[in-house]
Simulated scan of single mutants.
Amino acid sequence: MQATSTLEHPEAPPAISSRSFKRAFADVREAWDHRELWGHLGWQDIKQRYRRSVIGPLWITISMGTTALALGLLYSVLFDTNVPTFLPYVTVGFIVWNFILGCITEGTDVFIANEGLIKHLPAPITVHVMRMVWRQVLFLLHNLAVYAIVLAIFFPALSQQYTISDGGPVHPGLSWTIVLAIPGFVLLAVNAVWVALAFGVISTRFRDIPPVVTSFINLVFFMTPIVWDAGVLQKVTGGGSNDWRILIAELNPVYHFVEIVRAPLLGHAVDWHHWVVVGGFTVIGWALAMVILRNYRARVSYWV
């Protein structure tokens, strides 16, 4: 009789390569499942920053309000605009810009700054990005107090048809379209995550990227209609051969991201091409971020 072994070992599940889109998507999904972790860490970041401060995070609001008031009054004189409509324009522009600025500048440093946690905390690397974006969301919520104050003061001017500068476009005024600021900000936050993921991984490998981005972002600020009204470009072109000047704003992607939030909050006409541009950047940006996450996610812990 021939003895044969009939013991069968269960087959092990096939190993998944670390460089796979399945792992990349799993990293993002697991980071969302850890939202209690990054939500708590982001809140602690703010508490730690303003530890032993008398008024705490209200310093964010005071700084924001002072800057918006000073630049709003200055540029209203330089551009000969209406202060009751131009000051809210500058204020909301600054609120949105500070969120974008924080996500980009801190996004380039997000993995470098969390070197200790990355090496000792077994968590998806997207957790650190979510933490940073959530921290910026909390900053923005504090800054919205400035918008509420400005809205209360200048509501009569914003609740009817108005122009920011003489000869500029006529805006319909505040209406139910103000709720469109909510999906606009959601899109802004979703894009902030992929921007931080992409720039964070690249900056971890090439440490020259953060200072380059910091220098370049100052130029982007002055090229974006924040302290100047985009309607000025329409006024100076006059529909003639100088229409190329409008491209100064239209070719700037940051302008479209600012507008999908600012326009509803100020009662401007909702121009749907801004949403189309932002939607396109969302799809393309996340596709790029997933490729970067697929190829280099496992190397971040060695680069930091």
Rank of each mutant, 00 (worst) to 15 (best):
D33V: 12
S215T: 12
W244H: 09
L251A: 12
A31K: 08
L71Y: 07
L188I: 06
I248T: 07
T214E: 11
F25L: 15
A287Y: 07
D109Q: 12
L219I: 15
D243V: 15
A157I: 00
L140M: 15
P225T: 01
L7P: 06
Q48I: 12
W59P: 06
T91K: 01
F154T: 00
D271I: 14
P14K: 14
W32H: 13
V270P: 01
S63K: 12
K22Q: 15
V270M: 12
V278G: 04
G267D: 05
F21K: 11
I292Q: 02
H34E: 15
L144R: 04
T163R: 15
R29W: 15
A198S: 14
T282S: 06
V212N: 08
L78V: 10
V227G: 00
V213A: 05
V186W: 06
F99P: 00
V212M: 12
Q234G: 12
D271G: 10
G240V: 11
W38P: 06
W43P: 06
W275E: 05
S17K: 11
T163N: 11
E30V: 14
V133T: 13
S215A: 14
V137Q: 09
M290V: 08
G39K: 11
Y89V: 02
L71F: 11
M130R: 04
S175N: 14
Q44T: 12
H273S: 15
R52F: 15
L188T: 03
S301W: 07
I209F: 11
V146D: 01
T282K: 02
G56P: 04
D243N: 14
M64P: 04
G56N: 08
L158M: 06
G116L: 08
V300H: 05
R207Q: 13
W244F: 14
G173C: 03
P13N: 09
H34R: 13
R205Q: 11
L141T: 08
G93D: 02
A287M: 10
V195P: 01
G267A: 07
R245N: 08
C103A: 15
H128W: 12
V133Q: 08
L158H: 01
G72Y: 01
G279M: 07
R51G: 08
T163V: 14
D208G: 05
A289E: 00
I178C: 02
L158F: 01
I149L: 05
I60W: 05
H171C: 00
A31D: 09
T237F: 07
R294T: 02
G280K: 06
A298L: 09
I202R: 10
V195Y: 03
E11F: 09
G239C: 05
G267H: 04
F155M: 00
A15Q: 15
F199G: 07
D229K: 04
